[in-house]
Design a protein around this nucleic acid. Structure first.
Length: 260
DNA sequence: GTTGAGCGTT
């Protein structure tokens, strides 16, 4: 959607897109349009919004009819304070109608041919923006701690965070889960010996923590009716843990039998 | 009510 129509960009034949960063989340296209219109003929103002919430993502695209006017807008509006935040105006690079940039300056005459596809090249990304990125990551980490399953909210940074997302492998989680499972089972078996004491201690210790973590969840009774137990007749996980294979038992009896 | 690096719509 754009500022001028509901059916997408009006005419992107000969337009020069500017990326306006650091705008306030409350700033709308109507706010930016008059501001940028003073620098030249603005064809369209588009503010990408969140798909679900519809909130602004904090940046906008302003399309100019002429490149020189776009350049003028950059010169005049870059760093301008808009709605309490100083915006950053620069040429859009990855848009559908990305303007070719020639050494930081607009390359005029692009309209006559589409050779700009060749001119467009991925510029190096080495910048001193890591500082801000780290800050963002930190703040997000704390957010994720509170809400673990909010992957929907990461929609807008999902594309850039894909590298980090891929780093996390489910194997680790599975392993941890399995280990925890074993531990829990072992503990539950031990509880047979001193049921009251263990239970009492466990109750005191984990009652407050568990309540805050998962109130209505009770994973323990869910694991009790495991088919393995019924099939073997005795605790299979522990048995497996101690003597995984008969060959080992035999080997052990050879050398360590007399000792034990 | 919040956030703050980035690159776009039916």
């Amino acid at each position: 959607m754009s500022h001028f129509g509901r059916t997408g960009p009006p005419d992107i034949r000969d337009t020069f897109s500017l990326l306006v960063l650091n705008i306030s989340f409350r700033t709308t296209a109507d706010d930016l349009f008059p501001l940028f219109e003073r620098c030249g003929k603005v064809v369209d103002v588009f503010i990408p919004r969140d798909r679900r919430t519809g909130d602004s993502r904090g940046f906008a695209f302003v399309r100019y009819k002429y490149a020189d006017e776009a350049q003028k807008a950059i010169d005049r509006l870059d760093g301008r304070n808009v709605d309490g935040r100083n915006i950053m105006v620069q040429f859009a690079k990855y848009g559908p109608n990305a303007v070719p940039i020639h050494k930081g300056r607009v390359k005029e005459g692009v309209e006559k041919s589409r050779d700009r596809s060749r001119s467009r090249s991925p510029r190096p990304r080495h910048r001193d923006r890591d500082d801000r990125r780290r800050s963002r990551s930190r703040s997000r980490s704390r957010s994720r701690e509170r809400h673990v399953h909010d992957r929907d909210r990461d929609y807008r940074r999902r594309s850039r965070s894909r590298s980090r997302s891929m780093s996390s492998s489910p194997d680790h989680k599975s392993h941890r889960r399995a280990r925890d499972d074993v531990k829990r089972k072992s503990r539950s078996k031990s509880r047979s010996k001193s049921r009251s004491r263990s239970r009492s201690r466990s109750y005191h210790s984990s009652s407050p923590a568990r309540r805050s973590a998962s109130p209505p969840k009770s994973p323990l009774p869910q694991r009790s009716p495991t088919p393995e137990k019924h099939a073997n007749g005795k605790d299979s996980p522990l048995s497996r843990s101690v003597s995984p294979s008969p060959k080992r038992a035999s080997s052990r009896s050879l050398g360590s039998d007399s000792k034990e």
